[in-house]
Every structure is written in C-alpha cells, then in structure tokens.
C-alpha cells in the first residue's frame, strides 16, 4: 500500500513538473521550431539581451514588485497589528473585507480597476499597476504577518513594560525582533505576488508600458518564439527561489514564536 502510494505521488509530481521541464529544455534547444531531439544552445538567452521590449518589461516588473513589497508590507503590518492586538467594534467585518481581493476572480477585479481608473482619470500605466498590485498584496501581508503575531504572546510586551519599557520601547525591543521573520516573509510574498501577477497587469498596462507576464502573453499570442522559454526559465528560477526563501522564513518564524 505504502509503495503504491509513493509511486502514485511521484507520478503526480512528474505530471506537475513535466511541462516546466519541457519549457526549460526548449529554452536550451537550438531549434526555433521546437524540433526534437534537443540540440543544446544558449542562443535564446543571448538573444534576450537585445530584446528591448522584453528587457524594459522585466525592469518594470522588478520595479513594481519592489515598490509593491515596500508599500504593502508596512501597510499590511500596521493593519495586522490593529486587527490582532486592539479590541474594537467591526474587527471581524474588517477581517472579512480582506477576502474579496483574494477570493474574487482577478478577471473581475482587473476589469473593475480598468473601468474605475479610466473613469476617474487615474488612467493606466505603471502607477495604475502599482495601485492594483499593492491592493492585491495587502490582504496576503495582513494574513501572513497576523499569523506571525498570533504566535507572539501579548504578555511579552506587558512584561517589558512592567520592567520599565514605554509601550514604544517594548514594541521595538521585544515585539519587533520576534515578529521580523514573518514580516520579511510577507515582504517576499508581496514581491512574488506582484512579480507573478498577470491578469490585473494585463488590464492596466498600456502598449508601451507593460510587465514581463503581459509581454510574454503578447508574444505567445503573436506566435512562438523560443526567447519566451529563456525568459520564462529565468523568471521561474527567480520566483521559485523567492518562495523557497519564504517557506524557510515562515517556518523559522513559527518555530521561534511557538517556544
């Protein structure tokens, strides 16, 4: 039974990784028409260097992801602090309001943003992308950072205060250091959410100003070019690395807080 279970599991993992493996393989294949068998080559990676739209989209993606992380993390952390540590009426309603951005299909949120931004004159472009990405990232940050706060007992701060710390000193000397791993994890997650975001970017970008996923989508619809494989491979490696670091951090945060 156990051997069967493991075999099945490995088969599922093979299924999950098959197309990814194919894509990576094709990125290193010399043929522009994806003909098999593979002839190893780095020409598509080299070609990336001279693909101006793709490079500019990559730069935009990284820029927006960094800005999203830098804005959404403090905003989400502050909200989480209030939601976890303060008693007030309407708390459960505010928690509930975090769900729509996560649960409503992005298509609907994306088109709604398009309509609203167009109507109000905010328009499309990098600033609109940033507004949208931050909004998407905030609920995730609140959830991750809030979970980190939950493992931190409130009486640690009380203990510090009884020993003479002002509330502000107690926060910075006790709560913040213990909370930091989950805040960093949330920042990484916000970065990853923004980097991977396609649907909303698709509706909010303009022909000249887009992000990497939007550019990739445009290329796919235009026709096949192996350069997409190369850039996707790099992209995949970056987001996997981010998530692995995130997994490590959030686990560490949990371990430290629970003791």
């Amino acid at each position: 039974m156990i051997a069967l279970g493991r075999t099945y599991l490995l088969a599922i993992i093979a299924f999950l990784y098959l197309p990814i493996a194919v894509m990576i393989a094709m990125a290193f294949n010399d043929s522009a028409l994806y003909t098999l068998p593979i002839q190893p080559s780095l020409r598509w990676f080299a070609a990336l260097a001279s693909d101006a739209p793709l490079l500019s989209a990559t730069r935009n993606s990284l820029l927006i992801a960094a800005a999203t992380s830098a804005i959404a993390t403090p905003l989400g952390a502050m909200a989480a602090l209030a939601l976890e540590r303060k008693q007030f009426r309407g708390r459960s309603l505010l928690r509930l309001l975090l769900l729509p951005p996560i649960a409503i299909p992005w298509l609907i949120i994306g088109t709604a943003m398009l309509v609203f931004f167009f109507w109000t004159g905010i328009g499309r472009g990098l600033h609109a992308l940033l507004i949208g990405h931050v909004a998407l990232a905030i609920p995730y940050v609140v959830l991750i950072v809030g979970a980190g706060l939950q493992t931190l007992r409130a009486d640690l701060e009380e203990a510090a205060m009884s020993l003479g710390s002002t509330p502000i000193h107690a926060f910075f000397s006790i709560t913040l250091p213990l909370w930091l791993p989950s805040v960093v994890a949330a920042a990484l997650f916000a970065f990853a959410v923004s980097l991977d975001q396609f649907v909303i970017s698709y509706f909010l970008s303009t022909p000249g100003v887009s992000t990497l996923p939007v550019e990739i989508y445009a290329s796919i619809r235009k026709g096949f070019t192996p350069e997409i494989n190369a850039i996707s491979t790099i992209f995949l490696a970056v987001s996997s690395a981010l998530i692995l670091i995130f997994a490590q951090l959030s686990q560490l945060g949990g371990k430290r807080g629970s003791r």
Partner: peptide
Amino acid sequence: MVFQSYALFP
C-alpha cells in the same frame, strides 16, 4: 510581575 506563562523574552 511573574506571569503564568513566565513571558520570558525568547
């Protein structure tokens, strides 16, 4: 104050 959970700074 000695807390029920001790509240030592981990």
